[in-house]
Design a binder for these strands. Structure first.
Length: 468
RNA sequence: GGCGACAUAGCCAAGUGGUAAGGCAGAGGACUGCAAAUCCUCCAUCCCCGGUUCGAAUCCGGGUGUCGCCUCCA
C-alpha cells in the first residue's frame, strides 16, 4: 500500500514516490506577516500539519520548510500606515503567528526561512534567469519573460493567451507582456531596499519561495503546498522561475487546500467577516477548531460558523469521553479474558487498517474520523459489558488512540491526575452516603464538587471523576 | 469570455459501478436513587431529464443551481 496524493499538476491522484525515501521534502507557503492570521489561514496550516504528521506516522522522514514573507507590497503598505519599520512589523506578526498556530497545536516547521534573510540567494537566482534568457531588466526592474517559457500555464491548465485575456498591467509597470511578473523591484522612496546588480531594490513576491527552497533543498521538492488561491499566479510563477534558472521541476507533487468560507460567504475585509484565530480562540477550544477543519476533505470548500463549531465540539467530546472512559477503566484492568475481548480486538485491528486506508487515499481525514468513531463505540461497549477488563487489550486500544492523536490532535490523553486528599475524602463520604441511601447528602457533595470543577459520574464499578 | 470544482437526510460529511460510513440534532427504549456517561432502535435511494449496464449516488450526454480561478488574497 502506498500513499496517494492528489497532484494539482496532473489533476489526478498519484502514488507518493519521494526522490530519496524515506526522506520527504515538503515546502508549505507560509504567511505574509503583516497581520494576525485568520481561520482560513489556519485551515491551510492545520491541513498540512496533519499531512506532515501522517507521513511521519507512515515511516517517512519529513523535512518541512515553511517561509515567512516579510517583504512585499502588503508589508510595506501596512508598515507605512502604522508608521513602523517593515522589520518591526514582521517581527511582531511572526511572533503572533507562532503563538496562534502553537495554540492550534500546529507543530513548527523544521526550517522557517524569512525572505529578507535570503536576499543573496534571490539575487543569484535572478542572475541565473537573466543569463538563461528567461528574464529581462528595464530601468532597475527585472521581469520574468513568460514569452520565452512556452509551458507557462501548465499548473493553471490554461494557455498563455487564455490567461492573457484577464491579465492587466498595473500603472507604472514596464513589462513587455502582461503576464510577465516582477522578480526584482527597483526601490521607491521610503521602502526597504538591498543592493543588487540592478541597483537598490527588493525581491518580487514569487521569487523567494523558489530561491529559498533551492537553497535549503537544492533539488526538486517532493511536495509543495499552499492554499488553492496560490495556484495562479504564485505557484505557476514559482514553477516557471525554477525551471528557467535550474531546468528542473520545483516540486513533484502540488497540493492545494480548499477555501474556508464564513457563513457561506467568502472571507474578505470589505464584508467585514475576517475571523482571526486570535479572536476565535477567545471563545472556542482549539481542539474544536481542528475537529471542524478535519471533518471535511482538505480540498473541499469548508464552511465556518458558530453552529458548526458547536456541532464539532459535541462530536469531539464524544471521543474525549471515550478516552476518559478508557483511562479510568484501565485503573481496574487485569488479565481477564472474555468473548467481548475478542470482538474488540478484531474491531481494533479493523480500525487500524481502515484508518491507514483512509489516510493513504489523499489524506481523507473525514473518512478516518468515521473509523475513529466506530472504534470508540466498540470500545465503549467493551467497557460497559466486559468488566473485569483485560489490561493488555485496553492498553493496545489506548496506544492506537495516542497514535491517532499524534496526527490529528483532537483530544487530551493525559494520565489522570491524582486527586487531592480532601476531594478524595469527600468522594468516599459520598459513596458511604449513597450506600446508606442518604441521597440528599450525596447530591450535596456532588454539587459542592461541581462548583470546584469536579464532575462525578457513578458507574457500576464505582464513582469516576473528571475535571469540568 | 476562458478554465475549473461541486450538488448525498434538519445540519456537517464519507463513499467514484454491486445495492447509501461516521458525527451533530431529533424521537423512542435500556441502565441509574437522581444525574452524567454509555448502549440499543428509528430517521436519505444520493439536484433534474435522458443514456450505457444484469446492476449507477458512482460512467456518458443534456439541463438547473452554487462556488472558485483568470487581479492582492490562504
Amino acid at each position: 500500500m502506498a500513499i496517494k496524493i492528489y497532484n494539482t499538476l496532473t489533476r489526478s491522484k498519484e502514488e507518493l514516490k519521494p526522490g530519496a525515501p524515506p526522506l520527504v521534502t515538503f515546502y508549505v507557503c507560509g504567511p505574509t506577516v503583516y497581520d494576525y492570521i485568520h481561520i482560513g489561514n489556519a485551515r491551510i496550516f492545520i491541513t498540512f500539519d496533519v499531512v506532515r504528521r501522517y507521513l511521519d506516522y507512515r515511516g517517512y522522514k519529513v523535512k518541512l520548510i515553511q517561509n515567512y514573507t516579510d517583504i512585499d507590497d502588503k508589508m510595506i503598505n501596512r508598515a507605512n500606515e502604522e508608521g513602523v519599520a517593515v522589520r518591526e512589523l514582521a517581527d511582531r506578526y511572526i511572533k503572533a503567528y507562532e503563538e496562534d498556530v502553537g495554540a492550534l497545536r500546529v507543530r513548527a516547521a523544521d526550517v522557517k526561512p524569512k525572505a529578507t534573510d535570503h536576499i543573496p540567494q534571490i539575487i543569484k537566482l535572478v542572475e541565473r534567469l537573466l543569463e538563461n534568457g528567461y528574464a529581462y531588466e528595464i530601468n532597475g526592474d527585472v521581469y520574468f519573460d513568460t514569452g520565452n517559457y512556452p509551458r507557462y500555464g501548465q499548473l493553471t491548465r490554461q494557455k498563455r493567451d487564455e490567461l492573457l485575456s484577464g491579465a492587466r498591467v498595473e500603472p507604472g509597470e514596464k513589462k513587455k507582456n502582461p503576464l510577465d511578473f516582477v522578480l526584482w523591484k527597483q526601490k521607491k522612496e521610503g521602502e526597504p531596499a538591498w543592493e543588487s546588480p540592478w541597483g537598490e531594490g527588493r525581491p518580487g513576491w514569487h521569487i523567494e519561495c523558489s530561491a529559498m527552497s533551492t537553497y535549503y533543498i537544492d533539488d526538486t521538492l517532493d511536495i509543495h503546498a499552499g492554499g488553492a488561491d496560490l495556484i495562479f499566479p504564485h505557484h505557476e510563477n514559482e514553477i516557471a522561475q525554477t525551471w528557467g534558472a535550474d531546468q528542473r521541476p520545483l516540486a513533484r507533487y502540488w497540493m492545494h487546500a480548499g477555501y474556508l468560507n464564513i457563513e457561506e460567504q467568502k472571507m474578505s475585509k470589505s464584508l467585514g467577516n475576517v475571523l482571526t484565530v486570535r479572536s476565535l480562540l477567545q471563545e472556542h477550544d482549539p481542539f474544536d477548531l481542528r475537529f471542524l477543519i478535519l471533518s471535511a476533505h482538505y480540498r473541499s470548500p469548508l464552511n465556518f460558523s458558530d453552529e458548526l463549531v458547536h456541532q464539532s465540539r459535541s462530536g469531539r467530546l464524544r471521543l474525549q469521553e471515550m478516552v476518559n472512559n478508557l483511562l479510568s477503566a484501565l485503573d481496574s484492568a487485569g488479565d481477564a479474558a472474555s468473548e467481548q475481548e475478542r470482538v474488540l480486538r478484531k474491531d481494533l485491528e479493523d480500525a487500524k487498517a481502515r484508518f491507514v486506508e483512509a489516510m493513504d487515499d489523499d489524506f481523507n481525514t473525514a473518512d478516518a474520523l468515521g473509523v475513529i468513531f466506530d472504534l470508540a463505540r466498540s470500545c465503549n461497549i467493551y467497557i460497559k459489558e466486559a468488566y473485569p477488563y483485560n489490561k493488555d487489550l485496553l492498553e493496545e486500544v489506548l496506544r492506537f488512540y495516542r497514535d491517532i492523536n499524534d496526527i490529528f490532535e483532537l483530544v487530551d490523553i493525559s494520565e489522570p491526575e491524582s486527586l487531592d486528599d480532601e476531594i478524595a475524602e469527600k468522594i468516599a463520604r459520598r459513596e458511604q452516603a449513597r450506600v446508606e441511601k442518604d441521597f440528599a447528602t450525596a447530591d450535596q457533595i456532588r454539587d459542592q464538587l461541581l462548583e470546584r470543577g469536579i464532575i462525578l459520574e457513578d458507574t457500576p464499578h464505582g464513582t469516576r471523576w473528571k475535571k469540568k
